[in-house]
């Protein structure tokens, strides 16, 4: 792009300099330190001692439970959230009074941005012995325990991330050309068949965007498993807090962090390669 500005090079450099400094000091340097530490040893009093060893990586199975929990509950939670979010997005995009659309959409998104700690704390109470299980026992289902089980974590995942899943699905459904549905029904398709063969395939890019966003956040979650899993169902995030703040095994914690980041990047690359490949929807939905 040509500009009539007097010293374009200097101006460009000046515009980008703060970001370069920020990325270098706050992103690249810390990530480099993590990589270096992951090959080191734990100092006797905790912290880091210089070394070059692969032991930390070979020891990763010692925290295998955290990896297994994260790698099963994060995908299941994401899928469950997508399945529950879809009808909401469908209603907002195609069935609801256009006057209320934006308001209802904002109301879906808003909870995500209000105190996560307090909302999950409320769920501890609601799913605890005096909450939902007590109501269920009135109905004749005694002795159901929810809190501190994988079910509680899944309920929390749907609750916490529904606000992020609905908007991208909504956007893809709203863009959908309604004439395609008319054509489909004119050609004799049942509503169910129109839905399965027209609506659903066209909404998939939105589902994929939402699922990616939710999956990324679930993988790195700490508060959700901490509060609703109560130390019994823990994620990689809980293992990291333990390793860095309690047992102060920095090198091992660094290796666990790298493994987490590596899993996430592989997932994202697979997503970009196969899901975004032909759909032309390359934007990451943030809001």
């Amino acid at each position: 792009m040509t500009r009539s500005a007097g010293r374009p090079q200097i101006l460009t450099a000046a515009l980008l300099a703060p970001a370069v400094l920020l990325f270098a000091v706050m992103l690249l340097a810390p990530l480099l330190v993590i990589v270096v530490f992951a090959f080191g040893e734990r100092a006797p009093a905790g912290g880091y001692a210089a070394a070059f060893t692969f032991d930390n990586f070979l020891n990763l199975p010692a925290r295998g439970k955290a990896f297994i929990n994260t790698l099963t509950l994060a995908p299941i939670g994401t899928l469950l959230t997508a399945v529950i979010a879809f009808p909401v997005a469908y209603f907002l995009a195609l069935r609801c009074d256009p006057k209320w659309r934006v308001t209802l959409l904002v109301l879906v998104m808003a909870p995500f941005w209000t105190s996560q700690l307090l909302r999950y704390y409320a769920w501890i109470m609601l799913l605890g012995a005096k909450g939902v299980p007590a109501w269920l026992s009135y109905l004749g289902f005694p002795d159901i325990r929810i809190i501190n089980t994988p079910w509680a974590v899944l309920i929390g995942a749907v609750y916490g991330y529904l606000p992020l899943m609905v908007p991208p699905i909504y956007v893809s459904l709203e863009k959908l050309d309604k004439r395609l549905l008319e054509a489909s029904s004119d050609l004799g398709a049942t509503p169910l068949r129109s839905f399965l063969q027209v609506t659903l395939p066209l909404a998939l890019p939105g589902v994929a965007t939402g699922a990616m966003l939710v999956f990324i956040l679930l993988m790195g979650d700490y508060i959700l498993p901490q509060y609703l899993g109560g130390g019994k169902v823990f994620f990689i995030g809980n293992a990291l807090v333990d390793l860095f703040l309690q047992s102060r095994n920095w090198p091992y914690g660094a290796a666990v962090s790298l493994a987490l980041v590596a899993i996430m990047f592989v997932t994202i690359l697979v997503y970009m390669r196969f899901v975004l490949g032909g759909s032309g929807q390359r934007r990451v939905a943030l809001v």
């Binding site: 990325f23 706050m26 992103l27 340097a29 810390p30 990530l31 330190v33 993590i34 530490f37 880091y48 990324i216 956040l217 993988m219 790195g220 700490y222 995030g237 990291l240 807090v241 860095f244 920095w250 914690g253 660094a254 962090s257 987490l260 980041v261 996430m264 990047f265 994202i268 990451v284 943030l286």
Partner: peptide
């Protein structure tokens, strides 16, 4: 994209130990 995708917990940890 890396800044957005690296989990907050890893940003927190790496910043802590680096500094």
């Amino acid at each position: 994209y890396i800044a957005i995708m690296v989990p907050g917990i890893v940003i927190g940890i790496s910043t802590l130990i680096a500094f």
